[in-house]
Computed example of a mutant assay.
Amino acid sequence: MKKIITLLATLNIASAYATPNMWENHSIKGYDVYKISSSDNKILRVMCNSASSTDFIHLIELDINEKTYSHINLSFVIDDTEVITPTIDTITYTDSEHWYKLTSAFANANKIEVYYKNKLETTIYPQNPQLTYDLKNCPSMLERKLQEQSEEEGKEYIPSRPLG
């Protein structure tokens, strides 16, 4: 728990100065962090657990006025058509597919409406979606566990979904 609190505190400090509508990314403690801010300084952060222990989950947060809201009450409307509610505990097949749907939508979005408790909080118009190319390939925890299991058994790992 102390590690998660330290990680979140570090991410909040790093989020203080974001350029509106421009994706930024960096890595910290086994997470690939993608963040983007709206013109009204609300910051959306998607954290892919790409190298940390598979005991940890992916994270999605929204910062509003120095307060951070977790994925629990967030939902998104992508390009006025697709409504997505995030799932980050991606250990089941269904949640895994839902995670890929969300990350692919973010990676291809021209407009992201962010809702908190069904109330529109902000709208983001990504100007550089190419920076999120790797986000749509962020493996679910199910995929990572299957890969680790294959490696432990000395078998070739074949992803259950095509990458890219």
Rank of each mutant, 00 (worst) to 15 (best):
M1Y: 15
K2C: 05
K2Q: 09
K2W: 08
I4C: 02
I4R: 09
I4P: 02
I4N: 05
T6C: 11
T6K: 15
L8A: 03
I13H: 06
I13T: 10
A16D: 06
Y17E: 12
T19P: 04
P20W: 03
N21C: 01
N21E: 07
N25Y: 11
H26P: 01
S27K: 15
S27W: 14
K29F: 12
G30P: 02
Y31G: 04
V33W: 00
N41R: 08
K42F: 11
K42L: 08
I43V: 07
L44A: 01
R45I: 03
M47K: 04
S50D: 12
S52E: 07
D55G: 12
H58K: 13
L59A: 05
I60D: 07
I64K: 09
N65L: 10
E66G: 11
Y69A: 01
H71I: 12
H71C: 13
L74Q: 02
S75Y: 07
S75I: 04
S75C: 09
D80G: 11
E82K: 14
V83R: 15
I84N: 09
T85R: 15
T85P: 07
P86E: 06
P86Y: 00
D89P: 11
T92M: 05
T92K: 11
D95P: 13
E97N: 14
Y100T: 04
S104W: 10
A107I: 05
A107C: 08
N108E: 14
N110W: 03
K111G: 06
I112R: 00
E113M: 13
V114C: 10
V114L: 05
Y115Q: 01
K117N: 11
L120Y: 01
L120V: 00
E121H: 13
T123M: 07
I124Q: 00
Y125K: 11
Y133M: 12
Y133L: 09
L135F: 00
P139A: 10
M141C: 12
M141G: 13
L142H: 10
E143R: 04
R144D: 02
L146V: 05
L146E: 09
Q147G: 00
E148G: 01
E148C: 06
S150L: 08
S150V: 04
Y157F: 05
I158C: 05
P162M: 14
P162C: 15
